[in-house]
Simulated assay, not measured.
Amino acid sequence: MASAFPYRLYLVISEEACQGRNFLEVAEAAVQGGVDLIQLREKNDTTEAFLKKALQLKEVLQPYNVPLIINDNLEVAQKSAAAGIHVGNSDIAPTKIRTAWESCRILGYSIEYLEQLYNEQTYTSDYLGISPVFDTATKTDTITTWGLDGIEKIRASTQKSLVAIGHMKASNVKKVIEAGADCIAVVSAICAAKNPKSAAKELRLEIEKGLKSRTVKPN
């Protein structure tokens, strides 16, 4: 699965999260620092406004060959010809997305309890969002706070690529990767950082440390 989902640092961005700065500039700086996948999440925008931002962001990302993922809006994902879409339990089902959008290249699905590992939606998805790993102010409607033990349990139960999100920061991402996550997703750790490029570089460095220590651990 790793070859189908080679990404390590995943930025979830919105205009609001950038706290008054131009979200396109924040996104480009983040990519220059090591972000290799970006999700645009605009829950409160009209479809028209969301699509406009998606097309602008896609244009910024294209020279860097960084894929664009759209959060929970199939119409925007299709009309912007994004690389993929990410959905949760209360959103459109991955099985329906596969039927409606055959050219979708990256389909992500957030899981909230272990039983979901064995349903059709999980099997249909390309990667699983483990959300949240730690409590976070940006996500208040979740069922499970997974923690490192939760990541280890999920890793032992599936070969799917795992994207960890929820209070991810430079001081904890190494441990999260060591526990079995393949990729780290962040919002405020980059969007709210004084220097998004430097913040991304630091996160990427810690991810690489985690991957390195994971490979030398005995099974």
Rank of each mutant, 00 (worst) to 15 (best):
203 L>D: 12
121 Q>H: 14
101 W>H: 08
92 I>W: 01
178 E>K: 13
139 K>A: 09
49 A>P: 01
52 K>W: 04
54 A>G: 12
93 A>W: 03
206 E>G: 10
36 D>E: 06
201 K>H: 11
52 K>M: 01
171 S>D: 15
177 I>W: 03
4 A>L: 14
216 V>C: 11
58 K>E: 07
55 L>D: 08
10 Y>H: 11
212 K>A: 15
218 P>T: 04
156 A>V: 05
191 C>V: 06
110 S>W: 00
204 R>Q: 10
56 Q>D: 15
114 L>F: 14
196 P>R: 02
124 T>Q: 14
31 V>Y: 07
106 I>W: 13
133 V>R: 00
73 N>T: 02
174 K>P: 04
104 C>Y: 01
192 A>G: 10
6 P>E: 01
199 A>G: 13
79 K>T: 05
218 P>F: 01
42 E>C: 13
89 N>C: 09
145 T>C: 15
55 L>K: 14
42 E>G: 14
53 K>N: 07
147 G>K: 07
190 I>D: 11
181 A>N: 10
36 D>K: 09
27 A>E: 10
16 E>K: 03
72 D>N: 14
203 L>C: 09
62 Q>F: 01
22 N>Q: 04
185 A>Y: 02
104 C>P: 10
34 G>P: 12
167 H>V: 02
19 Q>V: 09
50 F>I: 02
97 I>Q: 03
177 I>H: 11
196 P>T: 06
31 V>S: 14
180 G>T: 01
164 A>G: 06
109 Y>C: 02
105 R>W: 02
121 Q>G: 06
1 M>T: 13
105 R>F: 04
70 I>H: 00
209 K>G: 10
11 L>E: 07
26 V>H: 04
154 I>M: 07
111 I>K: 10
10 Y>F: 07
90 S>G: 05
5 F>H: 08
15 E>T: 11
112 E>I: 03
22 N>L: 03
217 K>V: 09
198 S>T: 12
177 I>L: 08
176 V>M: 11
165 I>W: 06
170 A>F: 06
125 S>L: 02
85 I>F: 01
65 N>F: 09
100 A>G: 06
87 V>W: 00
57 L>D: 07
206 E>D: 09
190 I>F: 00
68 L>Y: 00
103 S>F: 05
207 I>H: 02
164 A>T: 06
124 T>P: 03
69 I>E: 00
158 T>C: 13
34 G>H: 03
149 D>F: 00
32 Q>L: 14
91 D>G: 12
73 N>W: 00
204 R>W: 05
75 E>T: 13
37 L>M: 13
141 D>K: 05
165 I>D: 11
50 F>M: 04
131 S>H: 05
19 Q>H: 12
187 V>W: 08
77 A>D: 05
37 L>F: 00
111 I>R: 05
109 Y>F: 15
181 A>D: 10
216 V>M: 12
70 I>F: 00
119 N>G: 06
12 V>F: 06
36 D>Q: 09
120 E>I: 12
169 K>Q: 14
200 A>E: 02
135 D>E: 13
124 T>I: 02
1 M>R: 08
45 D>L: 11
